[in-house]
Design a protein around this nucleic acid. Sequence first.
DNA 1: CCCCTGACATCAA
DNA 2: TTTGATGCCAGGG
Length: 110
Amino acid sequence: MVLQKNARDIEFKKQQIWTVVSAIPYGCVASYGQIATMAGLPNYARFVGSCLKNLPKDTLLPWHRIINSQGKISFPLDSARFFRQKELLEKEHVLVSNGRVSLKKYQWNV
DNA sequence: CCCCTGACATCAA
DNA sequence: TTTGATGCCAGGG
């Protein structure tokens, strides 16, 4: 993929990321870097985060299934965002203890 | 144009 | 295993 730097391509990249994120199955988790790579955008892990941060509160995207490369939630343990993500994960039977998720990453069939 | 920041990743020590 | 330095990319000042 040709990586240019104009607004149109940025939008395209966001769509790629959203597509991949929405494809994460129920009860599974993936890392930012993995999402970026699967979207055809290696090294865009950071960009994945910046895309998710301004999602509407009622978004349908399963953003809570995205964690960092250490298998942990990327929020301070005492933050409201952290609890929201943890709650959504546990609703899918994914346990979270001390920020760590009870699942291995990359755990679904593509 | 430079510098800093951020829901990150990777590697060396 | 944990920590600090580097690399990464887009945005904002």
